[in-house]
């Protein structure tokens, strides 16, 4: 995975700095959520993507506004990277009316259909067929958007994964299947649950390109997605990108992480995608003080989102039966 990575030509230094800030937004958002769960301030459950910021930010940065994404149960990063409003996200986790889903969806169902975030999904692999359907609309209505479909290593063992990729392949649909291989589906390690080296190798079985990348290297993510998105947009069909990464936190709030070692966790923390990106930016001559100020701004934005959420009203009981049918 030690490829020489060049920047996609359309990416300016300013854009890179934005992405750096965005990655911090994602990290601070999920760390804040983690803290609230630990304190019992939020109920239900949540899945955090701390350590996986480069996949969300890198991949989505290569999309146009018209493009769409489908996300997963570990979807806060995807939502933020797609331009999601952290106030509405935090409010949703607090179950408030100002949340993205008016308090009806919670962490696993944040969506913003109008801006092309077709939603997180509580069913592993559940969003993959939906991405194919959205790509079908793009093709049939000639809307020229691409769908970026996030899924995890666990989802690649679901039937919906195989059915959907085959369907997208035979119909040449504009969809990029982006696997965030964070090494574990809950407690099941990818080594234990599959008998192949790379999930992207499965692309061969469907007659589409598959590529394995370092998911903690944002530039590598950007390059791979840029290429796959262009291919899809030009009518050359889908592809699979497998980004190897790691979730620093447990699967959900109740995870004692007995299935992996602390040493392994430490190893991956040394591959921190944000720290690596910072080093790259410094090498490009971007001022460290400026980068630190972006990080501070991100922190403040998340703190503000908490204030927004906690000051927002809870839903009225009248809203219970609303929105079941259109």
């Amino acid at each position: 995975m030690n490829k020489t990575v060049k920047l996609p030509p359309q990416i300016t230094k300013e854009r890179l700095a934005d992405l750096y800030k965005e990655m911090w937004l994602i990290r601070y958002f999920d760390e804040k959520v983690d803290e609230f769960f630990a304190k019992g301030m939020i109920h239900g459950t949540t899945h955090l993507c701390v350590g996986q910021e480069a996949t969300a930010s890198g991949a989505i940065s290569m999309l146009k506004d018209i493009d769409k994404i489908t996300s997963t149960h570990r979807g806060h990063g995807h939502c933020i990277a797609k331009g999601g409003d952290v106030n509405k996200m935090m409010a949703e986790l607090f179950g408030r009316t100002t949340g993205y889903c008016k308090g009806k969806g919670g962490s696993m169902h944040i969506a913003d259909v109008e801006t092309g975030n077709l939603g997180a999904n509580g069913i592993v692999g559940g969003g993959i067929p939906l991405a194919v359907g959205a790509a079908l609309t793009s093709k049939m209505k000639k809307e020229e958007y691409v769908v970026l479909c996030f899924f995890g290593d666990g989802a690649s063992n679901e039937g919906s994964f195989h059915e959907s990729i085959n369907l997208a392949s035979i119909w040449d649909l504009p969809v990029v299947f982006f696997c965030e291989n964070n090494q574990y589906g809950m407690s099941g390690s990818v080594k234990e649950m599959t008998n192949i080296e790379n999930i992207a190798d499965r692309a061969k079985g469907y007659g589409i390109p598959g590529e394995v990348i370092d998911g903690n290297d944002i530039l590598e993510v950007m390059n791979a997605v840029d290429e796959a998105v262009s291919r899809a947009r030009n009518g050359n069909g889908p592809s699979i990108i497998e980004a190897k990464t790691y979730r620093w936190k447990g699967h959900s709030k109740s995870d004692a992480k007995k299935y992996r070692t602390r040493e392994e966790e430490k190893e991956w923390r040394q591959k921190d995608p944000i720290a690596r990106f910072k080093k790259m930016l410094l090498d490009k001559g971007i001022d460290e003080k400026y980068l630190d100020s972006l990080q501070e701004e991100a922190k403040k934005t998340i703190e503000d989102s908490v204030e927004f959420a906690t000051n927002s009203p809870e839903p009225s009981l009248d809203s219970l039966m609303e929105d079941v049918y259109a």
Partner: peptide
């Protein structure tokens, strides 16, 4: 379609969600 009832149902839903 191929014999893929999960994918074709999902494709229908995804296309409906996006305007078909």
């Amino acid at each position: 379609t191929p014999i893929s009832e999960s994918a074709i149902a999902g494709a229908a839903i995804g296309s409906a969600l996006t305007g078909m």
